[in-house]
């Protein structure tokens, strides 16, 4: 007799997937506010002047904070105790992003890159819908932890490397933890989100710096 990875898991996939529905239910009409912010971010990155582009980091910070407070602390931590401390780490990432917002603006991003990144992230958001057969389980960046971490890694490619690396540590830790959890649950499709997040984090760590933080 020996332990399997699944033996360390204290909840069932059913309970885990319900977290997505419950979080979206709890947000109510606020969910549309999140969608509005998510639609605005590419517009800011594509067209806005330097000062306004800083708001992207503010939005990311808000997303990390919302994810920590709602999905993680309110719903996930009661069934999975390591998530409680992780929620505080998410709050730390939100704080770090606010520091970055104040000090380093992101570079402008080309439309084609934004379209590609958005399409990929949208597909990832839909994985939990596919798994549960209800759109109410959609996993939005800024609301659910895997999508928040993966999206952050993508967006950080618009920042200079020195600002980027420190912000990749927490997404890396979370995506590794989450991928193991999905593996233990046997949730192969939803596992694509943290695994893709890990790929994005690796890309963001190696991605060449933008030519200028403020000029396309």
């Amino acid at each position: 007799m020996d332990y399997a990875l699944g033996d360390f898991l204290m909840f069932t996939p059913e309970v885990y997937l319900r977290l997505f529905e419950r979080t979206n239910e709890a947000l109510g009409v606020g969910l549309w506010g999140v969608v509005a912010v998510l639609v605005t971010i590419p517009v800011l990155l594509c067209r806005a002047p330097t000062l306004v582009r800083r708001l992207v980091a503010v939005a990311m910070a808000a997303g990390w904070g919302l994810t920590a407070a709602l999905f993680m602390m309110r719903f996930y931590a009661p069934i999975n105790w390591p998530v409680g401390p992780f929620a505080w780490v998410f709050a730390l990432e939100a704080g770090l992003l606010m520091v970055v917002a104040a000090r380093v603006p992101p570079a402008r991003v080309r439309l084609v890159a934004l379209a590609g990144g958005s399409a990929l992230l949208l597909a990832l958001s839909w994985v939990t819908v596919r798994e549960t057969d209800t759109w109410q389980a959609i996993a939005l960046p800024g609301v659910t932890p895997d999508m928040t971490a993966a999206t952050t890694a993508v967006l950080l490619m618009a920042w200079p490397r020195r600002a980027r690396w420190g912000l990749l540590v927490i997404p890396l830790l979370w995506c590794a933890f989450s991928a193991l959890g999905h593996w233990a649950m046997g949730l192969w499709w939803p596992m694509a989100v943290p695994v893709t997040g890990l790929v994005f984090i690796l890309m963001a760590a190696l991605w060449p710096p933008p030519r200028s933080p403020s000029v396309e």
């Binding site: 898991l9 204290m10 909840f11 069932t12 059913e14 309970v15 319900r18 719903f75 009661p78 069934i79």
Partner: peptide, 13 residues
């Protein structure tokens, strides 16, 4: 109750 009754506050479950 290992795993099976760890449903948090989910009213449906």
């Amino acid at each position: 109750t290992w795993r099976t009754f760890n449903v948090g506050t989910d009213p449906v479950l």
